[in-house]
Amino acid sequence: MIQAINKIDIFQQLQKQIHTLQGFRTPTESQRVDFGLGIIERSFTGNIFPTGAIHELISAGREDAAATTGFMAGLLGKMMQRGGICLWISQKRTLFPPALKFFGIDPDRVVFIDVKNEKDLLWMVEESLKCQALSAVVGELKELNLTESRRLQLAVEQSRVTGLLHRLNPRRIENTACTARWKITPLASSLDPEMPGMGFARWNIELLKARNGEPGQWQLQWINGSFDYSAVKPSILSDEDQLLKAG
């Protein structure tokens, strides 16, 4: 029995060492951001949503892209609570800046880089991720392979900037070095049948991959400036998503 407890201890210690080697660092109390994601945060190491890491968000179609943008804006809003500037790098931007205010971001604190050719886009994302002064970097790009993602991951391990990569209609989904891969799709808002109008934004959040974490699927609402996970319930991944996860 005592041996078994020792073993668990040793496992945990070794795991911690591996995490440090992999570039994972527990944020200090002052750097810690409360995302209010509740149960979703438990999927990651240390039960914290990983900042200073690369998140990959995949969407197909404009409706999904809008939902993904909403989720990203929600995360950004939490990260930029203490001020700071965020960079939004894209080629064909459709984001409407005033909408960011609904997610607690002052749109004038976001600097948009509208890149003309795709070749420069990845270079600019990498260069921005190296800049410690930024709160976060959003990159809207299509393709990303293992080597490219590895470079970005190495950049953020140095600078501790959070990178959100939104991949719209990617042609291939390869294995990447990103910390997490998400897929967000819109869900019909729930509303009392007698009530007119539209309800709060509601999404189906799929965490397809999480480094050192557990993938999962939840439903989430955005209500008055915070994530609402009262409706959060884990659900089983579909076959198609299993394939994506295998990537």
């Binding site: 700071g84 749109p107 600097v111 880089i113 890149v115 600019m124 921005s128 800049c131 002064a133 930024l134």
Partner: peptide, 24 residues
Amino acid sequence: DQAEIAELLDRLTGRGGMDIVHRY
């Protein structure tokens, strides 16, 4: 931070052209 970000933007405009940075 401001200076550091300005320097970053200089690098980006140096590569992509002066008209790529927008703020609203």
